[in-house]
């Protein structure tokens, strides 16, 4: 049966807000697997680290698989040490950088969407290293996803809801936009739990900035593609946490995956939860990522 997952929270939420979201997911959401841990900025995790044990416990008690994700970009010794500690834990880890893959070699692990898996040979290599589930990059077309999912001897995961991560940098654009230094940023990113809107000079929205990460302004919504992806062999469908009510988002996706709700009706329900944020599905249609095609 198709599994629904909740990807790592990319944004900097207040620790209690973060904890409460996960508690609700544990208690109410039809989600099979939850990814925890900081992917974007290593300065953030200490702020909410103390809450992680109780979040893990609550999710596990609810029967959900819990995975710890690693940073998408690792440069400092402090980050390397933290990653080494994470990869040494008994819990299953999602590797988002080659450094993590090298630490997890020979042990079951998951590779995250920041690992460039564009073809079968790379996929095969990762599986030989111990990957039991492979997340595909957001940039792939539906054709490429299908080719890789069919080929993949282990589980395949694809992001089907939420802002798409488009790039990562050492430079913190949140700090830059707020006129502070990265080293003394005072966590200005917490001002924008939904990311900082970055618009064109015309005023038309384009991107969202989240610290060192740049994301799509629109939510990727692949409800219409779910059946095709299921048929191609995608096993895990990732929802990326947004400020929208993720319990209700999960319920809609679960219903469409189960065939209890058609995709168009699901989309109509989803619009009630997501306000004015536009939807995108260009990448999966083999087009520019920001496009939205209904047919």
């Amino acid at each position: 049966m198709s599994k629904l997952t909740l990807g790592p929270l990319f944004f900097q939420w207040k620790p209690e807000q973060r904890r409460d979201m996960y508690f609700r997911i544990a208690d109410e959401a039809p989600i099979d697997c939850v990814y925890l841990g900081e992917v974007v900025c290593s300065k953030r995790e200490p702020l909410y680290y103390d809450y992680l044990p109780e979040i893990v416990e609550r999710l596990s008690a609810a029967g959900k698989q819990v995975v710890l994700s690693t940073l998408a970009l690792i440069t400092s010794d402090r980050e390397l040490a933290a990653i080494a500690e994470r990869c040494g834990e008994a819990m299953i880890v999602e590797a988002n950088d080659v450094a993590s893959i090298s630490l997890l070699k020979g042990r079951p692990h998951i590779t995250g969407p920041f690992i460039n898996v564009f073809n079968e040979a790379t996929l095969d290599f990762l599986v030989r290293q111990g990957a039991i589930r492979v997340n595909l990059p957001v940039e792939l077309s539906g054709t490429a996803i299908a080719t890789l999912a069919r080929h993949n001897p282990v589980e395949t995961e694809v992001l089907v809801f939420g802002r798409q991560p488009l790039s990562v940098s050492m430079r913190c654009y949140h700090s830059r936009a707020y006129g502070v230094h990265k080293e003394s940023c005072q966590f200005v990113c917490e001002t924008d739990p939904d990311g900082l809107a970055a618009s064109q000079l015309t005023g038309a929205p384009l991107l969202r900035v989240n610290g060192t990460q740049t994301m799509s302004h629109g939510y990727a919504v692949l409800l219409r593609e779910l059946t095709t992806l299921q048929t191609a062999g995608v096993t895990h469908f990732r929802l990326s946490p947004q400020v929208a009510d993720m319990v209700q988002v999960a319920e809609i996706y679960r219903s469409v995956l189960d065939g209890d709700l058609d995709a168009a009706s699901g989309e109509a329900l989803l619009h009630n939860l997501t306000g004015e944020t536009p939807y995108v599905n260009g990448y999966v249609r083999g087009r520019e990522g920001m496009a939205w095609a209904e047919t």
Binding site: A72, F114, N116, V138, Q164, L166, S216, G282, E288, G289
Partner: peptide
């Protein structure tokens, strides 16, 4: 790891 060009 940058897809801004393909996004547009």
């Amino acid at each position: 790891r940058c897809t801004l060009s393909s996004y547009i």
